[in-house]
Amino acid sequence: MPLLAGDVEGMDMEGLNELAFVLGGVNHWITVFLIMAGLYIIVSRSNMIKKLVGLSIFQTSVYLLYVSPGKIIGGTAPIIIEGAEDQLYSNPLPHVLILTAIVVGVATLALGLALVVRVNEAYGSIEEDEVYSDGDWN
């Protein structure tokens, strides 16, 4: 690993370290991007379905956050094979957790969409400006 060992002469070590920080954490950057993008959509859109899309994107960030540290490059599924007990395998726990989280996400989305359908029936609109300005909330 000469690139990171820091003993190759004439190389711009500082720049390389930064590069490693940026590239090495690429999945985290994507996670952060998804969080921000999702939240931004929720805050900025008034269309109720678009908001739900934003919410889904926001939740998706979680999947990446959990799965990426669990995955080991070159690792396989954690199945014990006779004679190859020392096989390199990925941590199964985050994957299982995220399966659950995906189910939760789907359920939330489904319920949210169902609500939007009902809101549309009741108000004739799914624009938040129109729904919330309608009538007196008090």
Binding site: L55, L65, G112, A122, Y132
Partner: peptide, 20 residues
């Protein structure tokens, strides 16, 4: 319905923040 939707958005953000 609108209140429930509002709660759904906020509640899910909260729960997701927690899980992050």
């Amino acid at each position: 319905l609108a209140a429930s939707y509002q709660y759904l958005i906020m509640g899910t953000i909260g729960a997701t923040m927690y899980v992050i």
